Simulated scan of single mutants.
Amino acid sequence: MTRTVNGSTTHAGQRRQSLIEAAYQSIAQEGLKGLRTRDVAAQVGMTHATLHYYFPTKEALIEAVADYAVFQKLLVDVPYDNQEGSPRERLHQFLITLQHNIREEPTHFLVLYELARYTRQCPAIREIFQRQTFHPSWHRFMATLLDEGIRQREFRADLNAEDGASILMMFILGLGTSLLMPVPGDPEQMIQQIEHWLIG
């Protein structure tokens, strides 16, 4: 087995993951301003120097937290690459599962929102978000589904798939921000209205 300075590859992966989870919880509870790498290291029984072995900079740790919040938390069980069912069914399942994840555990979205708040004032955080692939990949996924649905006559013929995907992205972001500023209405009924619009 390949060895690292701090033990086996598996052990190193576990230690790295524990640092990410501790930083995630710190941002969730204290905000980004409250994130202290020394405190994160102490929470998992490591020295500050050991943390820097895994994450040379604070920005590297923040980037790992953003990736963790999206791919290991927010998108859990979301049928992202599922090819079963019609385009309409797949899009419905994607939206329903994603909104369920946002509602059941709002921390995932709120951590991302907290990081996103700093993109205007902090170039390093802005670069982290520019490198993230989840926004363009979600857009591509939905545009592809809409295009398939248009060709199969499941969605309205005058729908522009690219613009439709952008509108769906804004709707998803709105579902998340409604955790901070609640709006009237049931999310599943909103999804039904979006689907009615897509069908025409």
Rank of each mutant, 00 (worst) to 15 (best):
E114G: 02
S26C: 15
A60D: 08
F141T: 15
G85L: 05
L115F: 01
I150D: 07
Y53C: 04
E114T: 01
H48L: 03
L173P: 10
D186G: 03
Y80H: 10
F109M: 08
A165P: 00
A64T: 00
P79Y: 07
D77N: 13
T37A: 06
A28T: 04
I125F: 09
V111A: 10
R126P: 01
V111H: 03
H108P: 07
H92R: 15
R15K: 13
L173S: 07
E63P: 09
Q29I: 12
I62V: 09
A23Q: 04
D81N: 15
E30V: 12
R90Y: 05
L74R: 08
M169G: 09
L175T: 08
T37E: 09
H135E: 15
Q130S: 12
L180E: 11
H196W: 09
P136V: 00
F94R: 12
H135K: 15
I102S: 08
W138K: 08
V70H: 06
R38Y: 13
Q17P: 00
K33I: 10
E114V: 04
E154Y: 05
R88D: 10
L112I: 07
P184F: 01
S18L: 09
E162S: 09
M169Y: 11
D158T: 09
Y24Q: 03
A23F: 02
R88P: 02
R140E: 13
V5F: 12
L74D: 04
Q14L: 13
L110F: 10
G174C: 03
L168H: 00
E104I: 10
L19Q: 01
I128M: 01
S137Y: 13
G164C: 06
Y118I: 02
H92N: 10
T9S: 15
T177A: 00
L168G: 03
V40T: 05
A28R: 11
T177M: 05
A28P: 03
D186E: 07
Q121C: 14
A60R: 10
P182V: 00
A64I: 00
L19E: 06
Y68K: 11
V78T: 05
D81M: 14
G34A: 04
R120F: 13
Q17D: 11
G185M: 00
H52I: 08
D147C: 06
F129E: 03
R36Q: 14
A66M: 12
T119K: 06
M170Y: 11
H100K: 15
R38K: 13
T97I: 12
L74F: 09
E30K: 14
Y54V: 01
Q14C: 11
R90D: 06
G31A: 10
P79C: 12
P87S: 06
